[in-house]
């Protein structure tokens, strides 16, 4: 979900707005973290069915993809929390040249990374939806026969 301000407007954001962006991004990612763990459990739960199906390779691929996403999420969350804490530097009395612009550059980079993460997770989720639909169809057939 895109709750953050459009990238174009980062240029005009004040410190309060930047703080809101970071908080929203962190909260979104926390939701995705829970979801990712659920999907990992679900895939693990159905591993045997996946393995015996023709989609063995796909099952392995999904497992790897979920792990990679999990690692990326952890790093991104860590970076965002550090970034959000760094906002204090902007509000203190010590003036460093370009500090706001530097902060915004990092901000921009992190917001893009968060968006990319959302997109990539969606791709993996779509594959999982299809796989699960397939498994459930098969288990229904088994029950009927």
């Amino acid at each position: 979900m895109n709750t953050t301000t459009h990238f174009k407007y980062i240029e005009w954001r004040n410190t309060k707005g930047l703080h809101e962006d970071s908080i929203n991004a962190i909260s979104d990612l926390m939701f995705l973290k829970d979801e990712l763990h659920f999907l990992k459990d679900l895939v693990a739960e159905h591993t045997l069915e996946l393995m015996y199906g023709k989609s063995h390779e796909e099952a392995v691929k999904i497992g790897i993809a979920l792990h990679t996403l999990d690692d990326r999420l952890k790093n991104l969350l860590k970076d965002l929390v550090v970034h959000s804490n760094n906002l204090k530097v902007l509000t203190d009395d010590i003036d460093v040249p370009n500090e706001l612009q530097d902060y915004k550059n990092v901000h921009y980079k992190l917001m893009v990374e968060a968006m990319d993460f959302h997109t990539d997770l969606k791709k993996t989720k779509r594959i999982i939806f299809e796989m699960m639909a397939d498994i459930m169809k098969k288990s229904k057939q088994k029950k009927l026969s």
């Binding site: 679900l42 989720k125 779509r126 999982i128 939806f129 699960m132 639909a133 459930m136 288990s139």
Partner: peptide, 12 residues
């Protein structure tokens, strides 16, 4: 699409 997936999950 995700809601279809959730429906399936609930059925299961």
């Amino acid at each position: 699409d995700e809601q279809r997936f959730l429906d399936n999950l609930i059925k299961e």
